[in-house]
C-alpha cells in the first residue's frame, strides 16, 4: 500500500486531462485548469450527469471507454471515482490526436501564404455555387509550411459539403494557448472554421482521411467543420 503523504494537488492541477470533483448535489468542489477550459464548451450539469451514470456501483473506481466530444475536445475514456457519499470525481482522458505511424513528408511542405490558398479555393467554390459567403481572416498570419495540393483538395471537399447552404461563414485564426505535437515539437494551431445552416455529410469519411494523413484535426458537426492546421514554420 502506498503510504506516501504529500500534496498531489499540483500534479492534478497541471494534468492536461480534465479532472473535476463534485459534491453530492453536483456542485463543483475542485477542478483543474484543463477542466476550466472544457467547461467553456460543456455544462457542469452534463458532466455531473455523466459522472453519476458511469459511477461504480459501490465505493471505488470505474473506467469507461467511451468517446465523448465537446467542440474540439475529444476524449476516448474517463474514470469516475468516489470513496464517500459527499465527493465524486471524474477524470477525462484526451484521445491522442496524432497517428505517430504516419510521418510527415516534409519535402512536400512548402512555405505558403494560407490566405492566398484559401482565396483560390473559395474562388473555385464560387465558380459553381452562388451561396452568400462571409470571410473573417487574419491577413497578418505569417506564411507557414503546408502541403498545398493536399490542403487544397481537402478544402475543396469541405467547401463542397456546404454547397446547399444559403450563407457560409469562414474564419481563419491562430489559436491562442493550444498546441499540437509534430515531430516531437510543440507547434501552434491555425483554426479554419466553416459554418452554415447545414451541410452534406457524404464526404465526411474522405475529409477525415485526407485530414488525418496531413496531421490536420477535423471536427465535423451538423452545421460546421473545424479544421486545425499545424503551424509549422
Amino acid at each position: 500500500m502506498n503510504t506516501l503523504s504529500t500534496n498531489f494537488k499540483f500534479f492534478i492541477e497541471s494534468d492536461i486531462n480534465p479532472f473535476i470533483l463534485f459534491d453530492s448535489s453536483g456542485k463543483i468542489l475542485y477542478l483543474n485548469s484543463a477542466s476550466e477550459v472544457l467547461l467553456g464548451y460543456v455544462s457542469r450539469q452534463e458532466l455531473y450527469d455523466i459522472t453519476l451514470i458511469y459511477a461504480p456501483h459501490n465505493f471505488g473506481v470505474r473506467t469507461t471507454k467511451l468517446e465523448l466530444q465537446y467542440d474540439t475536445f475529444l476524449f476516448y475514456a474517463f474514470t469516475v471515482s468516489y470513496e464517500n457519499e459527499d465527493e465524486i470525481a471524474i477524470h477525462l482522458y484526451h484521445k491522442p490526436r496524432i497517428d505517430t505511424t504516419n510521418l510527415l513528408q516534409m519535402d512536400k511542405y512548402r512555405t505558403t501564404d494560407i490566405n492566398t490558398l484559401l482565396e483560390a479555393n473559395i474562388s473555385l467554390f464560387k465558380l459553381q455555387n452562388d451561396n452568400e459567403l462571409s470571410l473573417l481572416v487574419d491577413q497578418d498570419l505569417p506564411p507557414f509550411k503546408i502541403d498545398q495540393n493536399q490542403f487544397s483538395k481537402l478544402l475543396r471537399k469541405i467547401l463542397e459539403s456546404f454547397r446547399a447552404s444559403d450563407s457560409i461563414f469562414i474564419s481563419l485564426k491562430l489559436k491562442i494557448g493550444e498546441y499540437i505535437i509534430i515531430r516531437e515539437k510543440k507547434e501552434h494551431i491555425i483554426e479554419l472554421k466553416i459554418e452554415a445552416n447545414g451541410r452534406y455529410v457524404n464526404s465526411d469519411e474522405e475529409i477525415k482521411k485526407i485530414a488525418q494523413a496531413n496531421h490536420f484535426i477535423t471536427i465535423l458537426k451538423e452545421h460546421s467543420i473545424y479544421l486545425q492546421i499545424p503551424f509549422i514554420q
Binding site: 490558398l117 473555385l124 465558380l127
Partner: peptide
C-alpha cells in the same frame, strides 16, 4: 464572368505547387 473567374482562380494558384 465564368471564364474570368477561372482566370482569377488560376492566377491565384500560379505561384503554388498544386494540380489543376
Amino acid at each position: 464572368t465564368q471564364v474570368e473567374k477561372i482566370i482569377k482562380g488560376f492566377n491565384l494558384t500560379k505561384s503554388l505547387l498544386v494540380s489543376s
